[in-house]
Design a protein around this nucleic acid. Structure first.
Lengths: 115, 115
DNA sequence: TGAACATATGAACTGTTGTTCATATGTTCA
DNA sequence: TGAACATATGAACAACAGTTCATATGTTCA
């Protein structure tokens, strides 16, 4: 163990531990990122960035099977990252809220940035 | 299959497919999110948000074993989300760049938002 | 009503990921 | 130099996540 900081009895580690957000919040944040963290879902979101679309167009746009797309849409739906409205036999999906767009473009910047 | 759009021969799906970023970019984006998408790593980043810290303080801050923390730090390092500088026998970690902070606070907003 | 289409979902399989445990590497200081 | 400490890492194991395949549900329209 490291020796105690002269100025205080409590280590930085302990201090920060006390100020940390509740586990539940951090868990939820991680869950949110987990949803973004899959190529198929990233593709879907990226496609929806361009325009609202039905599942069969999405399937074509991302180049995966209809089943795979549907499974991933369910996950995106539950995370409230996308919205659905049914019109006849088609289900139209769109991006959920503005956070999605902001987070997404922020990540795009980070990814494209020269290293 | 859905009948063709009257106005154009090419479906929205195909059009969007053509405008999509390269697979490699989408893959990298997903990889970035994947790194954020784990509670231990989220905790680590959250702690580093408060201040630069050595591994043993981090270990205390997030309440996991030293080994677990070290393994996750390696992943964060490779993703360039954190920086290390060695001082004597201690390794001090800090947040990598501003994107990290922005993405992180954006996600926090989304998570805390009332549903 | 029933055929054709759009979408959703369950089960099985496979690959991936995170933790633990043991141990290696690297640094200080007596 | 060697003991004590800080950090890193490899291997094994368990849990989880994504795709596929088969099929169910729901909708339209002849």
């Amino acid at each position: 163990m490291k020796k105690k900081n002269e100025a205080s009895e409590i280590s930085i580690g302990k201090q920060v531990a006390m100020r940390m957000p509740k586990d539940e919040i951090l868990y939820d944040m991680a869950e949110l990122f987990k949803v973004f963290g899959d190529t198929t879902r990233t593709k879907i979101l990226c496609a929806l960035f361009e325009s609202e679309m039905c599942v069969c167009d999405l399937t074509e746009a991302v180049g995966m099977t209809q089943s795979a797309v549907s499974h991933q849409l369910r996950i995106l739906r539950h995370a409230r990252l996308v919205l659905v409205k049914r019109k006849g036999k088609l289900s139209y999906y769109s991006l959920g809220d503005n956070h999605v767009k902001k987070i997404f473009s922020m990540a795009m910047e980070h990814t494209l940035e020269p290293k």
